[in-house]
Design a protein around this nucleic acid. Structure first.
Length: 399
DNA sequence: CCTAATGATTATAG
DNA sequence: CTATAATCATTAGG
């Protein structure tokens, strides 16, 4: 029976301040001092409490009832409550206030921004729009791409909300259960309302930490979804043959200054069914890759030069039709520069007639080589070509 | 599976 | 903001 000393110790240690009299009584009572009945009673009661587990259930029940009905019970109960209160406060009074978890706030903000935890549909579309804007400013048109994304996002949102609801419900259930239990027990155990409150807040903390995990995994899912659907690199599609033809045609007919103006880009974009940004990308890639390894592109360059030349020749000789082969209506809008350029390219091709193809390629390349790899000052709108051989590229489109 | 081609993005500079 | 250069990530072909 070493419980007794411990109990006594806790009394002397904690209870002193509030009720200095009680421990003394206890000590005197157990020590068998003068026969004050009340002290003796208290000593007996405590003794009974200490040994209550040793007794049979019936006996214990009877004793419990006896204790319950004891005239000292309410006072003792209050005292015990106070002691517990003070003990608990001294133990964890310091860590009572929790700072608003920055991690949780971060997650909340992100979920709100992604439209998972916000209002029903507005949030989703807003997030999608924002994502679209972030992904390259294309926006609007590629809704086919985003519908899938939105579907997945709303799926995530649904799961998130049902889970959240489930947690909340469980939390409430558990809380009421515990509260009822504690209230029930407060009849026989020293439990103060404050303690119940504290227990409830502990439960809430536990559940909110679970919720945080849910939020975290939801965030991760959204991030994965984003990187899957909105990182266009993952959805890269090669342009179709025709688009590549059109772009290459423009590129090689403007080899001396392959910087399409904004208008030209729009034109090309429309013809290729791609965006202006994609046109810009294409030309950026093409320029750098061409310059980096001209040899690799010579064949291609020659081909397009020849084709353009043929088109031009046909156009010039037969009048206005004849661009049928593979670039049906390329002349429609690009006619102007095709015509203007046709001169020099045609010349070069013509002059090669006697030479091998290699010679022809070199000839075609001389142009760009002469420029030393395009004007250092990229002035896209102006089509002035510094060292132009035969016909000037710029020359008016005079039919 | 490996590799070249290719569209897109990033970093940097003017 | 645009161009370049480097790099990433995917696609297509062997």
């Amino acid at each position: 029976m070493d419980e007794q000393p411990r109990l006594m110790h806790s009394h002397t240690g904690v209870g002193m301040a509030g009720h200095p009299g009680l421990p003394q009584h206890l000590q005197e009572g157990t020590g068998g001092a003068d026969g004050d009945g009340r002290k003796q009673d208290i000593g007996d009661i405590l003794q009974q409490i200490m040994t209550i587990t040793d007794q049979s259930l019936d006996e214990a029940q009877a004793r419990k009832h006896a204790l319950n009905c004891h005239r000292m019970k309410p006072a003792l109960f209050n005292v015990l409550c106070e002691i517990k209160e003070k003990t608990v406060l001294s133990i964890r009074g310091a860590q009572e206030e929790e700072p608003p978890d920055p991690q949780l706030m971060r997650l909340d903000n992100m979920l709100l921004a992604e439209g998972v935890s916000g209002p029903e549909k507005g949030g989703g579309s807003a997030a999608a729009a924002a994502a679209a804007a972030a992904s390259g400013g294309v926006g609007a048109d590629n809704s086919a791409e985003h519908s899938d994304y939105r579907a997945k996002l709303s799926q995530i949102r649904q799961i998130y909300h049902t889970e959240l609801e489930k947690y909340e419900q469980a939390c409430n259930e558990f809380t009421t259960h515990v509260m009822n239990l504690l209230r029930e027990q407060s009849r026989t155990r020293p439990i103060s309302p404050k303690e119940i409150e504290r227990m409830v807040s502990i439960i809430h903390r536990k559940f909110s930490s679970i919720q945080m995990q849910l939020k975290q995994s939801t965030c991760e899912a959204v991030m994965i979804l984003r990187s899957r659907f909105l990182d266009a690199r993952r959805k890269r599609r090669n342009f179709n043959k025709q688009a590549t033809e059109i772009l290459n045609e423009y590129f090689y007919s403007h080899l001396s200054n392959p910087y399409p103006s904004e208008e030209a880009k729009e034109e090309l974009a429309k013809k290729c069914a791609i965006t202006v940004a994609q046109v810009s990308n294409w030309f950026g890639n093409k320029r750098i890759r061409y310059k980096k390894n001209i040899g690799k592109f010579q064949e291609e360059a020659n081909m397009y030069a020849a084709r353009t030349a043929v088109n031009a020749a046909n156009a010039s000789s037969h009048g206005s039709q004849a661009n049928s082969p593979s670039t049906p209506n390329s002349a429609g809008s690009a006619g102007s520069f095709n015509m203007s350029n046709s001169g020099d390219l045609f010349m070069s091709v013509q002059s090669l007639n006697g030479d091998s193809y290699q010679g022809a390629q070199v000839g075609a390349n001389v142009q760009s080589q002469a420029n030393g790899g395009w004007p250092d000052a990229p002035t896209p709108s102006s089509v002035t070509s510094p060292t132009e051989g035969p016909g000037s590229v710029h020359s008016d489109t005079s039919n």
